[in-house]
């Protein structure tokens, strides 16, 4: 029964594993003479963000659990804990994650939290740990509540969430190239997720998947990694610092500056908080759609226009 699930803090168990795998990748890249890159300050900032996220997430996690339990108690049917409900919950959690992740990228309020994960110009295992400290405040939990309403126990939901995030660690690497076609067709892999971390115009807002890439294929956000367009990692506007406090808070500061500008209407102020990143009232910055359109206008339509406007 769900009440008998062991009380395991998965992220703290996985912590040492993450460190060991990072050390292995650092050495493996050196031995091969390629397949990724590390820079000391960049990796330290990433791991510091991860440690901060674990502490803050762990301290406030009870709020998520409390909300899930409240909704679970409203569920007309309570599902038992067995292999089938575990598999179903795992797949459905990943489905919810896809939409939560899409929301992180398409609403500036959520992007202000998630931007942390995309702020490195490197793509290695340490980048996976570059996590937000303010995930709770995005409100993305709402997207997972249907699981509790379906009758999945909150402990099972939390377990599936933890396992999903652990899966997402390993594919933050350039060391591994492509897998056999059937794997790349179904699973999220280093090749698919490196696209998600790239700021090349065609790769913006692509490959939101957690474990299964099928969601991107189903909902039209899949873009394959192309040899003709090697990924360039980081944000559209590069950061000029490794300071974790600035990395963590810069988009919130940007929102605050925008909404306190004189002369805006109430609607414009609201849009500065909730519209897609890059929205502005005066044409002074670009959304990802505009960046893609400008790219095509500048370079013409490439032979393979995946991720670019028709």
């Amino acid at each position: 029964m769900p009440e008998n699930l062991p009380d395991i803090n998965i992220s703290s168990l996985a912590g040492p594993l993450y460190v060991v795998l990072i050390l292995i990748e650092i050495v493996a890249i050196k031995l091969r003479g390629g397949g990724g890159s590390y820079e000391a300050k960049d990796a330290s900032t990433s791991i510091f963000m991860g440690a901060g996220s674990a502490v803050i997430g762990g301290s406030l996690g009870f709020i998520n659990i409390a909300v899930l339990i409240f909704v679970y108690n409203l569920a007309p049917v309570k599902l038992p804990f067995n292999v089938w409900t575990f598999v179903a919950c795992f797949i459905l959690w990943d489905f919810c994650y896809y939409w939560a992740h899409r929301y992180y990228h398409r609403c500036r309020w959520a992007w202000a939290a998630h931007v942390v994960h995309h702020s490195s110009q490197h793509y290695n295992l340490s980048t996976a740990l570059r996590q937000t400290w303010t995930g709770l405040f995005t409100g993305a939990l709402v997207l997972y509540l249907p699981l509790a309403l379906l009758g999945f126990h909150p402990a099972l939901i939390a377990l599936c969430g933890g396992l999903n995030l652990i899966y997402q660690f390993w594919f933050h690497t350039e060391y591994i190239d492509k897998f056999p076609k059937w794997v790349e067709a179904v699973m999220n892999t280093p090749s698919h997720h490196c696209v998600h971390h790239a700021n090349n115009p065609r790769y913006l807002d692509a490959n939101y998947a957690g474990v299964f890439i099928i969601w991107d294929r189903l909902f039209g956000s899949f873009v394959p990694e192309l040899a003709s367009d090697p990924p360039r990692y980081g944000l559209v506007s590069d950061l000029g610092t490794f300071n974790p406090l600035r990395v963590f808070s810069h988009e919130y500061v940007g929102i605050f500056k925008d909404i306190t500008k004189p002369g805006l209407t109430l609607v414009q102020r609201v849009l500065y908080v909730f519209a897609p990143p890059g929205w502005c009232h005066d044409g002074s910055r670009l959304s990802s759609q505009q960046i893609k359109q400008n790219y095509v206008a500048k370079h013409g339509k490439p032979k393979n226009n995946a991720g670019l406007p028709e």
Binding site: E39, D42, G234, D238, L239, G240, F242
Partner: peptide, 10 residues
């Protein structure tokens, strides 16, 4: 601006 071993541009 150099940031670590990478360059940021505005």
């Amino acid at each position: 601006r150099r940031v670590g071993d990478r360059y940021s541009l505005r």
